[in-house]
Design a protein around this nucleic acid. Sequence first.
RNA 1: GCGAUUGUGGUGAAGUGGUUAACACAACGGUUUGUGGCACCGUCAUUCGCGGGUUCGAUUCCCGUCAAUCGCCCCA
Length: 424
Amino acid sequence: MEKITKPRGTEDLLFEDTRKWHIMEEIIRTSARKYNFLEIRTPIFEHTDLFVKGVGDTTDVVTKEMYTFLDKKGRSLTLRPEGTTGAIRAYIEHKMYGYDNQPIKLYYMGPMFRYERPQKGRQRQFHQFGVETIGIKSAQVDAETILVGLDVCKGMGLKNLKVLINTLGDNESRLKYREALIEYLLQYKDELCNDCQVRLEKNPLRVLDCKIDSEKEFLVNAPKLIDYLNEESKVYFETVLKILDDLNVDYEIDNRLVRGLDYYTDTIYEVVSLNKESGAQATLFGGGRYDGLSASLGGPDVSGIGFGMGLERMLISAQVENPELFDERPLDVYLMPLSNEVSSYTLTILEQLREAGVVAEMEYFEKSTKAMFKYCERNKIKYAIIIGENELENNTLILKDLENNTQEELSEAWLEIVLERIKK
RNA sequence: GCGAUUGUGGUGAAGUGGUUAACACAACGGUUUGUGGCACCGUCAUUCGCGGGUUCGAUUCCCGUCAAUCGCCCCA
């Protein structure tokens, strides 16, 4: 009989995992709240066209990584590969550009889907936290998105990271540069690696950071984006950098930084983990500004900026850099019924403890005391409540301090005493 | 889409062309019937990812397949 297993690149998060995720999610929501980003939840699948138009029909994400299917009415739907386009779609659909409080600052957190070969820090179903500030083009806002991302990293206890930043220029600058670069590279087409020959057509900027070709002389001498920036773009980028300087954000300008989604313009950035344990997928969060995205999806011509953060990757880094963050809290009390006859009485005690806010559990199997004490040992439980025939008869219980190996028999005021002991 | 390595119980793993598949941990029971952590004893894989082939015989060899891990690509 063939066993049915989880699909490739997906994960079951079991108790140990979800505990860690809750801790991370709490940190993220706290950061988002401080920076006044409000949560939206958009569908996990959208019309395929949304991503084709938004992310770009020549990108890898769209051409080979999407989970696309037809529904029963023959509509083409796609499991979202990223969060920004869905957020912008919702922004337009709900006419958020008309809301009182501008700009719109929103965040999302949830699963994304890309058909890729799984490896460390990369799953087919993965999770992202992302923020978007829509409706304003302002260097302060660019900086703010980086700050909120870094605040999450800080909350997770990550120190070993690097902020890479670059500008693509506004649409005008970028298009001019793109043309010049293609023209230049076409002269050397035969000298490019196979991948780059394809990139040349699709995303020529990528050729510049190709691992195989980037050292070649004609690439070193290739036209530079910075020379094609118009005055406005140049000033804008300098302003962003100035703000980061003033805030003491440690960054590195990386002229080769290019993003794989078509909608980016002007400021782009990427924050990478420097841990060896992060593996080849070290980018913790990355994003940038997108001037034309809303307009291209049929919305108003407003600018926006945001990033996506890979939560699996955050968790990998945090467990390396700050394992204490995930320390487990044991049960406050463990109840040990010494026979089946007292288990109902034990349950009534248990229920009163829980109502008082105590994290407690009882043994449901009929186990030897030896086994029950072993359980406490293994789970680092400090207090046990032991209940046998005598206790049932006298309406009492025995509270045992397992660390000091002392115990006391309690009657009427037992709950108060237990609460007091646990507090210590 | 491409490449490398791997796939034996709840876990970590050893092992071999031939019927007892080591060992350790965990679990459970006992020595010790209501009081633990130590020690000792016992129990715990009709089976070696799945399918096919070679063979008298395959967990061990071959092919395929699925999956895991890591890398390329790409991205978060």
